[in-house]
Amino acid sequence: MSLAPRPPTSADAKAPMKAAVIIFPGSNREHDVCMALQRASGREPARIWHREASLPDCDLIVLPGGFAYGDYLRCGAMAAHSPIMREVKTRAERGTPVLGICNGFQVLTEAGMLPGALLPNRTLTFICRDVHLKVENNQTVFTSGYAAGQTIRVPTAHHDGNYTADSDMLDRLEGEGRVAFRYCSASGEFADEDNVNGSTRAIAGIFNESRTVLGLMPHPENATDPLLGGTDGQGFFAGLVAALQ
């Protein structure tokens, strides 16, 4: 039931982007992100079981959404100690881009690869809904497919997406251009009611210092097909492919 990989054509002057998607017990959006990556790059991502100690040669590492280890203890806390995470950190230090979506973002904060933490939504409920995001920094491999300040509409689906960090860290993130996305209105304004989960400073996604690690709560992979209600996530994956192939 999955897409057959698009065979490389002569138009593909560069080698298609190679992505590795880490599968933890309890991951559940790996299929969604693999579809989006495959559609954008023409190459099926490698799926790597969390107990592996090594990764294949790849241009991008993805930690997908889901409930790794049931999110028992704390969201992402146990997955952060999976064997594969040591290798993910090593690759990240060498500059391989790492993308954590939703539960993947939670794992990255628990693993210390991104600062701050994700608290329960301020409604204390799970929220699945389309939200608008402002692209705060498009000068990265992850966001180059968007214009600076562009507003996009993508879904969220999480219970614990309320980003928080101490104010020094927040100031640093702002000052260093490490806020990737912020929740906003359809017209790009910031109002409390558009901050879906109550995140501090409406932060939806952040980069590490070198902007090679991105964690974000919303799901651009679920907005890549016009039939499924939106295509604003296509720019995300097209930008990645353009930057990394």
Partner: peptide, 25 residues
């Protein structure tokens, strides 16, 4: 229905709130 993940698996063509949900096979 906003407390339910109605999008995971990436096949939801028609979301909750209508006459019937539609899931791409």
């Amino acid at each position: 229905w906003e407390q339910y993940d109605h999008l995971v698996q990436g096949n939801t063509v028609k979301r909750p709130g209508g006459d019937a949900a539609v899931i791409r096979i």
